[in-house]
């Protein structure tokens, strides 16, 4: 139950939300950013709806002693705004602006059997693997210098 069925059903709700909201449609996402052209403000309502539910729901959930299936709440603890965070986010935004897909919208889009979604997801996976290799070589160089 907690190993497969529960995360599968939660993923199903997430994917349904992406589909119903219109985030699954790259044309709609690109139009959200095109304030100077064919602007479609819908994406602000997606973020708004998700943030209201999460803001309230997280406060209720995180008041509990732990998650229902155990294991403790795994929350990020870092506070500093460092260079990788800002440069990485800037690079992500450029890719998002080119493609119109973000990771959370592209995965459900695979279920539409659209070749464009497959090309994007394969390229994104390649990007993550390239980034891991860059991180490894940076860490190795740092270890040598230390």
């Amino acid at each position: 139950m907690e190993r497969f069925l529960s995360p599968f059903l939660i993923g199903l709700i997430f994917g349904a939300g992406i589909a119903v909201s219109g985030m699954i449609n790259p044309a709609k996402v690109l139009n959200f950013f095109d304030v100077a052209g064919t602007w479609d403000p819908s994406l602000a309502f997606v973020m708004g709806g998700a943030l209201i539910v999460t803001f309230i729901g997280y406060r209720l959930a995180l008041k509990q002693p732990g998650p229902i299936f155990g294991g403790g709440f795994q929350l990020p603890t870092r506070k500093e705004i460092d260079r990788p965070l800002v440069i990485g986010s800037a690079i992500f935004g450029i890719g998002w602006g080119v493609a119109g897909f973000c990771p959370g919208a592209s995965i459900p889009a695979l279920g539409l059997f659209q070749p464009d979604a497959c090309v994007f997801v394969a390229s994104m996976i390649a990007g993550i693997l390239i980034a891991r290799a860059i991180r490894r070589s940076l860490d190795a160089r740092r270890a040598l210098q230390a």
Partner: peptide, 14 residues
């Protein structure tokens, strides 16, 4: 290139 940039960006941007 769009997908590769997204992959690299989200990795370093956490």
């Amino acid at each position: 290139p769009g997908g590769v940039l997204v992959g690299i960006g989200v990795f370093f941007g956490s």
